[in-house]
């Protein structure tokens, strides 16, 4: 177990070392990664500048929601979401064999090889944004914060299941079909409070495709509002991860019988 953690950290450092070989380009890409994510907050700012905004949410509360979303998304993209684009490249070059000849769990190896040094900017940017928002929110309790963080961890789990499904899709169908855009479309839902959605959408995104656990639920927990949603979504995430793992490993098995 410790050797696995050490290996993951080593891979992360190697990927960052890679990018430092072209320092200027790396720095610009970090900045642009972060700036691109500001669409949501800018949109929110414009809405609140021109109107009272969303019922029951102040500007800073929505900003916190979006900051949390960015933090969880950034962490996920940095750690393992790379396996989605990496699946595409690896397939094109027929290099998955290189992963299979290492004496390690192939999913773990693949994750290590796909660390994305660019998305560290999203992660850190998200943290800063969240911090900035929290400073403007009066009533934040420690227990609320802890529950929020637990919910965020489940949010990471949600992204992990998505990564597994998308990666399996690419391996199976050998085409990318703009999965990135699909991912962004799904993510768009999670940038806003659950309360603005019609009932069926709210239930869908809590129980079946629990995008709300990424930010909407943690944000509410931090202001002290916790309800059953957090449990429902947590269970859903666990189910999705299990399904995702099963799908990924059976796709890989098919791959290794289908040949490169």
């Amino acid at each position: 177990m410790t050797s696995a953690i050490k290996l993951w950290i080593k891979s992360a450092l190697i990927h960052i070392a890679f990018r430092m070989a072209y320092r200027g380009e790396y720095f610009i890409s970090l900045v642009s990664m972060f700036v691109l994510e500001l669409v949501g907050p800018i949109f929110t700012y414009i809405i609140y500048y021109n109107s009272p905004g969303f019922a029951g949410w102040t500007f800073y509360q929505v900003l916190l929601l979006q900051g949390i979303f960015l933090t969880v998304k950034g962490f996920s993209f940095m750690s393992f979401m790379g396996i989605v684009w990496h699946s595409n490249i690896t397939l094109q070059r027929g290099e998955f064999d290189l992963t299979l000849i290492k004496p390690r769990n192939p999913l773990f190896m693949f994750i290590c090889q796909s660390f994305d040094a660019e998305d560290t900017a999203k992660f850190i940017g998200g943290l800063l944004l969240s911090l900035y928002a929290i400073l403007h929110i009066p009533a934040v309790s420690l227990s609320g914060l802890l529950i929020g963080i637990v919910a965020m961890i489940f949010g990471v789990g949600f992204f992990f299941s998505l990564a597994l499904f998308f990666s399996s899709f690419i391996f199976r169908f050998i085409r990318s079909m703009r999965v990135y855009d699909v991912l962004e479309a799904i993510a768009m839902v999670g940038y806003y409070p659950k309360s603005i959605y019609p009932r069926f959408a709210g239930t869908l995104f809590t129980a079946i495709l629990p995008i709300f656990i990424v930010a909407a639920i943690p944000a509410k927990a931090i202001f002290g509002e916790v309800d059953i949603d957090i449990l429902i979504s947590a269970v859903s995430v666990i189910v999705l991860i299990a399904l995702g793992l099963y799908t990924w490993f059976s796709t890989i098995k098919k791959y290794s019988s289908a040949g490169g």
């Binding site: 109107s51 009272p52 969303f54 019922a55 768009m188 839902v189 806003y192 603005i196």
Partner: peptide, 22 residues
């Protein structure tokens, strides 16, 4: 597939904003 979905979300967002506005 993707763009109409985005419109759907946008409509939800703006409907919420407009209904909350005087």
């Amino acid at each position: 597939l993707i763009v109409p979905f985005r419109f759907f979300i946008l409509i939800i967002i703006w409907s919420a904003v407009y209904s909350n506005s005087a």
